[in-house]
Write a protein that binds this DNA or RNA. Structure first.
Lengths: 254, 254
DNA sequence: CCAAAAGTGTTTCCTCTACACCCATGA
DNA sequence: TCATGGGTGTAGAGGAAACACTTTTGG
């Protein structure tokens, strides 16, 4: 059998699914959309869609991200931070039974975004929403606030979301990715609250401050200060160019 | 457009490609096979093949690995090390032009194997071979020893191989994966030579010994000793159950 | 004034590094 | 005997944890 005989391989549908994470009100949240059709009609799912005929996988993910959030993916080659989201490939999910109707292989991507005004899938707040990942993964309570049933995510999206959350948790240890959750200018305390929300732990503010300001290339002072968190005015920083943190930020033991 | 209308999505071919790494004669080597047909006929490529109709991606990768090497993939749930290779998903490559004839999405997997007798693709030594990754990636010299041309790998396989090597290099820092390159029983010095080959650096034997024997769950003594490396008899160990190394093995600065 | 958040200093502990030194074999 | 690799001891550098303390705002 010639491995490239067009009649010799089964056809697959290929999609991209997005794990879009942000930090809102001290909680790690993911973007979910409500499915309008079967299967899993009415259930929450990760945003995603088919890869087009002549589209690279990363491009398809960036296009979906833009359609769902208005964000553009951050170009790693750009000289200055552009407030775009971080976007990377997460993993590929291809269980033959993950979609009951046909063979679908989904290339999941992970996006990290700053806190955004609100999702805008058709401008309908009922069809797209930020939900705490803790709720989505353990479905102990409603996704929303208005008496909906606590149901798990559609397809294998709970597994994909869990993998994305785990990737984000481990990656902020040794990279400067946590700044992707912050606005362009932020304080050390705001950055610390990102780590605390993603890891679900409390960090010592004094040691954290020393650590991040003492790591060359991680943060650059923008000159301004703010009191938006109350208390003594805090210096404002932007993300520095350094991508890797060495030595890494240590996550406290569980 | 309904996202699941069967006429609304383009069909893709889905393959798995394998980055199979081992350590031979103090060098990190990868398994390559010679292509028998166009395109890239006669060039070396990573082993791989089509995912079957009802096959999960990891299963397809394990099947290809068995066909190429006779290894079975290590079951993480097995209580004792079974001398199977470590196998994990690496990443997915789907550039529309990566195969000149059709749209192929390749789900690359990374396998780490102990030093094996010899590849056995059809029993033909000219069609499958271990080659040093340094040679494959920089094609500074022949892949083999018999005057072949130094040509780059077929398709985007050089990129996939580079990603796999980078994954292996970083993963042995914080996991016990380096033992996957060793036979069931091995000495501390043999394990150290694995790290040195994968990282391409020299490590202090005294500190390395203290580090690995002092990390609980990393190594368990098997009771025996050997002098196969010369010098004083060395204790034999097996891989312990611990998957994560904490604190990690530190890779010296470049 | 007080509360709250931002920062700094200091002590203790622990790990990594570097290297001196000893051990047990084969040739 | 020597060469070779295996293994232990130890002093110093550097980072992290824990926490006392000062600074600068708003109310």
């Amino acid at each position: 059998m010639s491995p490239y005989d067009p009649s010799a391989f089964p056809p697959f549908a290929v999609t991209v699914d997005l794990v879009v994470l942000t930090v809102r009100r001290h909680a790690l949240c993911a973007l979910v959309v409500r499915r309008g059709e079967s299967p899993f009609q009415g259930r929450w799912a990760l945003p995603g869609g088919f890869v087009r005929e002549d589209e690279d996988l990363g491009l398809a993910a960036a296009r979906e991200l833009g359609e769902e959030t208005g964000l553009h993916a951050h170009d790693p080659a750009a000289p200055a931070p552009d407030n775009g989201a971080h976007l990377e490939q997460l993993g590929t999910y291809g269980d033959p039974r993950r979609d009951p109707r046909m063979r679908v292989v989904s290339v999941a991507h992970l996006a990290l975004a700053p806190d955004l005004p609100a999702p805008r899938a058709g401008g309908d707040a009922n069809s797209a929403r930020w939900a705490p990942v803790e709720t989505l993964l353990h479905h102990e309570s409603d996704v929303g606030r208005d008496g909906e049933q606590p149901v798990p995510l559609a397809f294998d999206h709970a597994r994909i979301l869990a993998d994305g959350v785990e990737r984000a948790r481990s990656k902020i240890e040794y990279s400067s990715l946590a700044t992707a959750f912050c606005p362009q200018e932020f304080t050390v305390g705001e950055l610390r609250r990102v780590y605390e929300a993603v890891w679900g732990v409390a960090l010592d503010p004094r040691n954290f401050h020393r650590k991040v300001t003492g790591t060359p290339g991680f943060l650059v002072p923008s000159g301004g200060t703010t009191t938006r968190q109350g208390g003594r005015p805090a210096q404002l920083f932007r993300a520095g160019g350094a991508a890797l943190l060495n030595p890494p930020m240590l996550r406290p033991e569980v």
